[in-house]
């Protein structure tokens, strides 16, 4: 190219053929470059691609989708699962309280949660993270907390053990930032995710101040023998690769009146769950009578997960 060169308007045949050859060669190599896709671990069926947002589904469509998913679970895991979709209870307002004075850091809640919610075993996904913090050090100081203390170090009287999971904020930052409304807060205060709608941008994970959201960086793997067949569409049904998931207070249990799995397994009784709108509930009694605090109160997220310091 030189200055003053005139644009050429004509194209001779030879140039055209050469250009096409270059283009074709590049296209061919491009197609070959896509060859790893033949080993793709998850190929979305067309019906999944076309599926609408959860809140826009009619009851009939939901029924068909649940049936389809149950069939797929039977094929992949060999388990006849039941997918239900319990709706928020009227006037219920779920809340959770955890007594740090009692927690011994046994982490049984972590594994009960994995079992109940069909969390991926490999790569491992856990909704609950138990932090170990020295009592006479900085107290509740997250930066000096230990996240992976070996099991021999649990139950030490010189340490606090603080399990952290989704705080089900009244004012959830994760919901605000989701570009496609794949996550929202339900009437009863539980923040849920439509696993069929999430695009996997992980903006909610960046926004969450409690490290409560988990991303399926690989295809989640759960042995069929361990699969919990009692499933909720918005909670513990098998997840896809590349979508976000999080604690839902076991809504498939709690919305039918049962306790969450993490509460039932806790050997110390440090975990308490209930309906804040019921003045006689356990949770209401704790919030009324005990010294409670919430994590990172200054952020204005208004968690529904209270920490208690009590004997």
């Amino acid at each position: 190219m030189e200055k003053g060169q005139k644009p050429d308007r004509k194209l001779n045949r030879r140039d055209f053929i050469a250009g096409m050859a270059v283009t074709l060669a590049a296209a061919g190599a491009g197609a070959a470059a896509l060859s790893p896709l033949i080993r793709a671990e998850e190929i979305p069926p067309l019906e999944d691609v076309l599926q609408k947002h959860y809140q826009r589904l009619t009851p009939e469509e939901k029924k068909a989708i649940f049936a389809r998913l149950e069939k797929r679970i039977l094929a992949t895991h060999g388990v006849q699962a039941t997918i239900r979709d319990p709706q928020p209870l009227e006037n219920a307002h779920f809340a959770y309280a955890l007594n740090i004075g009692r927690c011994i850091g046994c982490r049984k809640c972590v594994y009960a949660c994995m079992k109940e919610n069909n969390l991926s075993r490999d790569p491992q996904i856990q909704y609950i993270r138990v932090l170990k913090m020295k009592k006479q050090g900085h107290g509740i100081d997250l930066e000096s907390a230990v996240h992976d203390y070996p099991q021999e170090e649990a139950g030490d009287k010189n340490y606090y053990y603080m399990p952290v999971q989704c705080q089900q904020c009244e004012n959830p930052p994760c919901v605000k930032v989701c570009p496609v409304k794949a996550t929202w807060r339900e009437e009863d205060g539980i923040v849920v995710i439509d696993y069929n709608w999430c695009i996997g941008c992980r903006y909610c994970q960046a926004a969450c101040p409690y490290h409560a959201r988990r991303f399926n960086f690989a295809k989640p793997r759960v042995p069929g023998a361990e699969l919990n067949p009692n499933m909720g569409y918005l909670s513990n049904r098998p997840r896809f690769m590349g979508v976000m998931e999080k604690c839902t207070f076991c809504l498939h249990r709690t919305r039918t009146g049962r306790y969450p799995a993490c509460l039932e397994v806790c050997p110390t009784g440090a975990r308490k769950f209930g309906d804040m709108s019921d003045p006689d509930s356990e949770i209401r009694r704790i919030v009324d009578k005990e010294r409670v605090y919430v994590l990172k109160q200054d952020l204005g997220t208004v968690p529904r997960f209270y920490y208690v310091f009590a004997k």
Binding site: V49, H53, V177, V180, A182, W197, I199, F215, G242, M244
Partner: peptide
């Protein structure tokens, strides 16, 4: 994570969380 669902970002077809997000 799910580029196959990029159309969820398209207003009308998808669910565009504007102006929130």
């Amino acid at each position: 994570g799910r580029p196959d669902r990029i159309h969820h970002m398209v207003p009308k077809i998808g669910y565009f969380n504007w102006p929130g997000s």
